[in-house]
Design a protein around this nucleic acid. Structure first.
Lengths: 339, 339
DNA sequence: CTGAAAGCGCTTACAG
DNA sequence: CTGAAAGCGCTTACAG
């Protein structure tokens, strides 16, 4: 049988209250008794029972982490890394993170994650693009939540985002400074605001250097309104090169796409980076194993998770505070696919 | 304020005990009162409070899922899928799954996952290769656990494994039936029993068809004693082709390696599958986006998770039962890299 | 078939 | 600075 607070109290010759106080670092306990209690706890290997504690405090001690099923199942490991960052951070405050996925076609009445239906979390993190109905549900329930790498135009929610705009801007600026003139963009659905921002960064960097003339953008960009994939990248590269053989660089909306773009370029017979430089975004693990190794914008995924956790804790402690957006900055990593 | 069991009892004009009985489908309650209680629960949107319940039953309602950090962070999404399968299955019995990672250098005194240190789980699943010290720790603690896709030679633990041997056998047999003669093997560390079994399947299929003469195996196999990766595959393919240009097929210990092997072959100028057929193992998501699309052994990852959960539940209900191994069968999927 | 009561292990005002 | 007591919301023998 595991030791209880009662056992500790008896052995220390004090009341349960006192033990509880030192356990929670609350109030003042004579440092002498405190030390005695502490050492007895250690010696009896005392661990407070979570459920008893939670029952008394009326908290769950859990945080939900929800992401779209496709993001967890498919090639994107981005949000797994973010999860890990949250998990690390949550250790400090003894929260457990409950990871679950939701389907695209989400109905709060039908598909609500269990921990939401049974009120088993104190707050939740939403990673990436998730159903709007879910966000609304949480908002209505007044359950503290943060969006990660996602935002809704016109809405004001707590959110941790990547500095997509500046990352893209810097990548393209780097390409320009290396002498590239015909810089293409290959991307996916603009439903995701990150991609929209990356495109904006691309465009404004070109504008800054006065590179946009006539139908530059039309001729040099390929976007398909679906979830990004390697396949899209390959298709995009092939089509663009046909339209404009003078392309000497491609900035891609993410690494997955970029890896497809590289395949496409390779099939066309052009050399990377001599003929065409390629830069991706995200720095997913396969990026550095690609051949050639992919230049990309590195996103500190663990830090994002950590920041999301911190923000969520702040909201949970102070639910009425005005929502805020925290932007995580990113870095360009030049590998073999550009210089 | 959320409704409690007391509220329900009062409204239904019965005692808390009765409500609790219908809640837990235990004992006999007059079907009339039962219906009444049920409908009142629904109407008041009653959700039993987990912590209270757990405190009374002395269970945690949680299951731990532990995997090696490298497996979660790197290219392997295998165990994420298995996790998802467990998560789905756990919904039925209202278990929450707590996912965490451990480092390679694991010391039970230092790096014990929180939910283990604080006894916050009723059982745990270990996915893939994990530190032996961890397994021993769980064994000593008498905490129910299952190994997934891993086993320790000479030890008898509850375990859910893939039918690696037969999968490999079938892949190689398929290659042989397609007329391939010089079938190579590229693999990684034999520390992992799965890889060892896959190699055995490879070898015995060759034996069955009497293909092994002289230094066939030496000349046709490349294994490096490190974690598998794309890089190893590429290196392996290059070296083997130099040693034996007659190679007309490669069976790889997993898809990651296979994708590297394909790059290596492509660089050598040989065609896939005309000159050399390639088959992988696992069917990770990128396999079907590879170019050429990778033939592989499909492993039902969700089913593995589901089975692991079921097994774990059985052990938790009956801890003294003799350990058992459950083997999940696999299928060959022929795509573009072989025929 | 149903109720009264004790108990699970903690926290938290409230006294002192 | 510390103790006594009530309470968190459920379950489970035990009576009846």
């Amino acid at each position: 049988m595991a030791a209880t607070i009662k056992d500790i109290a008896k052995k220390a010759g004090v009341s349960m209250s006192t033990v509880s106080l030192v356990l929670n670092r609350k109030g003042y306990v004579a440092s002498e008794t405190k030390q005695r209690i502490l050492s007895i706890m250690q010696q009896m290997d005392y661990k407070p029972l979570r459920s008893a504690r939670k029952l008394a405090t009326q908290k769950t001690g859990n945080i939900g982490y929800i992401l779209w099923e496709g993001h967890f199942s498919e090639v994107e490991m981005f949000y797994s890394q973010v999860f890990l960052g949250m998990e690390y951070a949550a250790r400090k405050n003894d929260h457990y993170i409950l990871l679950t996925t939701v389907k695209e076609e989400f109905d709060p009445k039908e598909n609500l994650p269990r921990f939401l239906r049974y009120n088993d979390v104190d707050g939740v993190a939403l990673a990436g693009r998730v159903p709007h109905a879910l966000i609304e549900y949480l908002d209505n329930q007044q359950l503290p939540f943060v969006l990660i790498d996602y935002e809704l135009p016109g809405k004001n929610y707590n959110c941790v985002k990547i500095d997509n705009y500046n990352g893209a801007f810097r990548a393209v600026e780097n390409l320009i400074n290396a002498g590239r003139k015909q810089i293409a963009f290959v991307g996916g659905t603009f439903i995701h605001p990150s991609i929209k921002d990356r495109y904006r960064g691309y465009k404004e960097a070109l504008e800054k250097y006065n590179l946009i003339h006539n139908d530059y953008l039309k001729k040099n960009s390929y976007c398909e309104d679906v979830e990004t994939s390697r396949a899209i990248g390959e298709k995009g590269a092939t089509k663009l090169l046909k339209k404009n053989p003078a392309i000497d660089a491609v900035f891609c909306c993410n690494d997955t796409t970029a890896m497809g773009v590289i395949s496409g370029i390779q099939k066309s017979g052009k050399r990377i980076p001599q003929d065409i430089a390629v830069i991706g975004f995200d720095d997913i693990p396969p990026a550095k194993f690609n051949s050639p190794k992919l230049s990309t914008i590195q996103v500190p995924k663990l830090d994002i998770g950590k920041e999301a956790y911190k923000l969520l804790c702040e909201i949970m402690n102070n639910p009425s505070r005005a929502p805020q957006t925290r932007t995580i900055s990113v870095d360009l990593i030049v590998r073999e696919s550009s210089y």
